[in-house]
């Protein structure tokens, strides 16, 4: 293997994930849970990956060094701290326990069946946060984490994100067909790609592999879900547009849209 192609193994994880936080006084006494999220929690990290940690507290985190991210919750923000250790960037995000409960309260079956557009029930960050309960590395409060994950599993979360993604796939497919009819072939290709992305996301979400807002991990999520409906090889062939004839993209577009429809026919929605 040449140096250019050499795989750089990520540095080993800390033996005690919470030690760097304690050393910097970043772990409050009222923490009810702490867990590693993101690529590290999935085992997909690389040597440049951040270490992302969620800490759940009962009182709002307040320091002069924290930064705010706006959220559609009460209070309408989460705070985070960033530091570096051994050349790694660590980001610690502080969620109030009540904010987690507010997000879980948005994904009830009553809400899902109330006619609200599924894509508007959660913000992307809320969706990502809840999804991370499914694949996190618990550090503190494992019973709390398991209890919240159980609530998530019993909720309409899966149906909400699946229906949302299928709806987006339909919209993109309709765009692609219209663009084919009007001769806007390049745009039809892009719309078909978008339809494929959403349809595959729906397929993966139906298998509990969430994370549509981070498409860079779609191949990993696909391998983890291993759906019977579509092989990885076929998915990757479409994702990388291998069958596209630039002189006549119409067959490729129709093939992609057919795959999207095949997925929609096989993804159960409640």
């Amino acid at each position: 293997m040449s140096a250019r192609n050499a795989v750089v193994a990520p540095a080993p994880h800390p033996a005690d994930w919470l030690a760097p936080l304690r050393a910097r006084d970043l772990l409050p006494d009222d923490a009810v849970a702490a867990f590693v999220v993101g690529s590290v929690a999935r085992g997909w990290e690389n040597s440049r990956s951040d270490f992302d940690i969620y800490v759940v507290t009962t009182e709002e985190w307040r320091t002069e060094t924290s930064s705010d991210t706006l959220m559609p919750l009460d209070p309408p923000r989460v705070r985070s701290e960033v530091f570096y250790e051994n050349s790694r960037r660590w980001e610690v995000t502080y969620w109030l326990e009540s904010q987690i409960d507010q997000m879980l309260a948005k994904i009830t079956w009553e809400r899902y069946t109330s006619g609200v557009f599924a894509g508007e029930i959660l913000s992307p960050r809320e969706e990502t946060t809840l999804a991370r309960l499914a694949h996190c590395l618990p550090l503190l409060g494992i019973e709390w984490i398991e209890a919240k994950y159980e609530v998530l599993k019993q909720s309409a979360f899966r149906s909400i994100v699946v229906v949302r993604s299928l709806g987006f796939a339909d919209d993109a497919a309709e765009d692609a067909l219209g663009q084919l009819e009007s001769g806007h072939l390049e745009s039809a290709v892009l719309s078909a790609r978008r339809a494929l992305s959403h349809a595959v996301d729906a397929l993966l979400e139906s298998a509990g592999e969430y994370g549509s807002h981070m498409p860079k991990w779609r191949p990993n999520r696909f391998r983890a879900a291993a759906p019977e409906v579509l092989s990885f090889e076929r998915y990757w062939e479409l994702e990388t547009m291998r069958g596209l004839d630039p002189d006549d993209p119409r067959p490729w577009v129709r093939s992609v849209l057919t795959t999207c429809q095949d997925i929609a026919m096989r993804v159960e929605t409640s």
Partner: peptide, 16 residues
Amino acid sequence: RRALGVRVRLVAGNLV
């Protein structure tokens, strides 16, 4: 052939 552009959902085992 199933027409493209038709919205399909699998609901409780049936196609809508």
